[in-house]
Design a protein around this nucleic acid. Structure first.
Lengths: 236, 236
DNA sequence: AGAATAGTGTCTGTAAGACAGTATTTG
DNA sequence: CAAATACTGTCTTACAGACACTATTCT
């Protein structure tokens, strides 16, 4: 009357990270080079094992801090999903991973210190063509797709920017993540009209020979209503 | 140079299910009574342990079949997320669960056969007030919230209906899940105009003293564009 | 002045919401 | 016929997209 006990088995769990940022107007992802087998020397998403009494959210936050030096508390970090195919690790059918999406401003990578194993930013378009370790190719695709969706309905786009940013910076985020050009005037109006998306700081940032752009900070809202539509009829 | 080996630890993994259906115009969830400690005798979400060489998706599908007799291949089944707080199981800090959302038409529960431990449908409003085992209260809330969101942007609402349904049936789904009244004429037009949401079968279903309703089947589309808006300005 | 970038005004088409009205059935 | 339910038409308002135009800086 307790078949669970027979069926119960223990597995190893990791948290892997899809850390996205915008560099030179392109969406980039942080990749590392694997130090150990399997897939030693191959590009992979950063990640690590669940430890001690951690939750997986804590594992992800810790790995994020170790890989990038970023404070996870100030970044957007959310689950993508669990990957548990028994064939995903060629050596152990019972290693599952919980993938996380992290969104970061373009910060310099502290290649020194910590666990950083040749971590580098790679344009997503490029990373998606490369063969990554394990099922990290699938995870990357899912993570990017999640980010694209989130931009539509939430205000996370601000997580790609620093504390202060211009509307143009924010538009560059949407254009990089979606890979489309947006109408500047309409974007400006939409963002500034949306409730709690951005708040003006009063400051201005000079531009290369042009009217200086007003600076903004992220507003309190997390859901974006009405959503930023990813062209319905203009056919993606 | 390999601190992973030290940190690596094994955990037990379960898949828990938030199985939703519409009964008597209300959103219901399937709850079971726990047979074993911890929380023996308490209401809980159905679920079970990852076995053999299964993926978690397969575990969820198997449990769904065992609990309800439903064929998972014909139902909507998707991940909600992972719950890994070390305090979620009072007896073992290393039991994590992957929660799944299942959407089912209102089928009779095969209380006979299989593993069915006093499984019963409970209105969600009621289930959310009851204290469930483990963190199943959180999982239920997240699952219901996910279902509400999914109704906006996808065509999953049809998964609540049988093979053939009327526009009124489909509207009842939205009204039950969102807990709001929708305008009948506008809903009808919106659904029938949306591309690939529903397709008319040509059949009709008589109603209690009224014009018979046309019957539809689910269309091929999975994303709903434009989305079914959950009242922007009419204040939720 | 001219170039460059930021931001506003205005017009048009589409879609949502309100709701009046029509269609098809039962009793 | 009345009652009931399904469905259609139409009007109003809001928003997306296009794009002409104004504003503010640098050289």
């Amino acid at each position: 009357m307790s078949p669970q006990r027979r069926a119960r088995q223990k597995v190893t769990v990791t948290a892997d990270l899809v850390i996205l940022t915008i560099r030179a107007d392109r969406l980039n992802v942080l990749l590392v080079e694997r130090a150990n087998e399997p897939f030693a020397g191959k590009p992979a998403l950063p990640g690590g094992f669940l430890r001690g009494r951690e939750s997986l959210d804590e594992t992800a936050a810790r790995e994020l801090a170790e890989e990038t030096g970023m404070d996870a508390a100030r970044l957007h970090l959310e689950q993508i999903g669990v990957y548990s195919d028994p064939d995903r690790d060629p050596r152990d059918p019972r290693v599952i991973t919980c993938a996380y999406l992290a969104i970061a401003p373009d910060l310099p990578l502290p290649t020194a210190g910590s666990d950083a194993r040749a971590a580098r930013w790679v344009p997503v378009a490029e990373a998606e063509r490369v063969r990554l370790a394990f099922d990290h190719g699938d995870i990357l695709r899912d993570g990017v797709e999640l980010a694209r969706d989130k931009l539509q309905f939430t205000t996370v786009a601000t997580a790609f920017c620093g504390d202060e940013f211009t509307i143009g910076d924010l538009r560059a985020v949407y254009e990089a993540v979606w890979g489309v050009a947006l109408d500047k005037p309409n974007f400006h109006r939409k963002v500034t009209d949306a409730d709690g998306f951005v708040v003006a700081t009063g400051g201005k940032r000079p531009t290369a020979g042009g009217r200086p752009a007003a600076l903004y900070r992220a507003g309190g809202a997390t859901v974006l209503s009405p959503p930023m539509m990813r062209s319905r009829r203009t056919g993606e």
